[in-house]
């Protein structure tokens, strides 16, 4: 059994461009007009990943705790920006709230995994921390975007029910609880589904990567289990935090439905 990474030379890397050519030919033959974005995407992939390769090499060498925290915080910022752009129903998404909930859930869950479960030496080893935190962020980013968007769309479609509950004397929380339930469900469903089918339908990227890198499959599986569970926890915490911090925005200071909720979809009022 050969162990270790089989290196890819520049020439071999260049061969992978053949794959782009195939895609390009299909696009050109069927006039899909995807050629330009395809080329641009290929160039970006090469440039971004090459740069991040150098950056990671440097970061792993320096391995400074403060630097790691700054990098992960930056990653949270980019993730929350992306998430808030994916919430058409929430208007201009609450960037700050998204950032706070991503940061807290990522650091909480990530620290538990790195310090208690993997425990490398030193505990803040960048080789472990950055990929782990990155995987958490990538997934919670999607989760919080889904749940926030769902919260606002549910509230819009149930505006009559919410107003009725308020006029029965409900608090804002009581009035939106059904919507919150739906929103959390929407945010967590993809993660829970992936817990169901992992290993049956797909071999997750991280595990595949470790196996390609020469790791023992049984060890790779153990890592994957930890990763799946930490992602589930981080998504749940992130969604819950964001919704707890956002739902008040739907109401005015006197607990009436905010006029912005009515005007956001153009009709009513």
């Amino acid at each position: 059994m050969d162990v270790g990474v089989i290196p890819i030379s520049n020439f071999q890397l260049g061969l992978s461009v053949v794959l782009v050519l195939i895609t390009g030919l299909i696009s050109a033959a069927l006039k899909l007009e995807l050629l330009k974005p395809l080329i641009w995407g290929t160039v970006r992939t090469f440039v971004q990943l090459t740069l991040i390769g150098y950056a990671l090499t440097l970061i792993f060498q320096v391995n400074n705790l403060a630097l790691i925290i700054i990098i992960v915080t930056l990653m949270c910022l980019i993730a929350s920006r992306t998430a808030s752009q994916r919430t058409p129903n929430a208007g201009r998404g609450p960037l700050l709230l998204g950032f706070v909930s991503l940061w807290v859930s990522t650091f909480l869950v990530g620290s538990i995994v790195v310090v208690l479960v993997i425990s490398p030496q030193p505990w803040y080893s960048a080789r472990i921390v950055i990929p782990i935190f990155g995987m958490i962020l990538g997934n919670s980013m999607n989760g919080i975007a889904l749940s926030l968007d769902r919260l606002f769309s549910e509230v819009k479609s149930r505006i009559l029910e919410i107003e009725a509950l308020l006029s029965f004397g409900a608090t804002p929380w009581e009035a939106v609880r059904d919507c919150v339930k739906e929103a959390l469900r929407a945010g967590m469903t993809p993660t829970i589904n992936s817990l169901m089918v992992v290993g049956l339908v797909s071999l997750p990227g991280m595990m595949t990567g470790q196996i390609l890198g020469g790791a023992d499959p049984q060890q790779a599986v153990r890592y994957q289990i930890v990763v799946m569970l930490m992602i589930a926890a981080a998504v749940a915490i992130g969604c819950l935090l964001l919704i707890l911090m956002s739902y008040k925005r739907l109401f005015t200071k006197t607990d009436a439905i905010s006029p912005a909720v009515f005007t956001a979809d153009g009709n009513k009022r």
Partner: peptide, 13 residues
């Protein structure tokens, strides 16, 4: 709101 209770024209179901 519990004392002065409003019933909308479109009933909430």
């Amino acid at each position: 709101r519990a004392m002065i209770s409003c019933n909308s024209q479109k009933p909430a179901v």
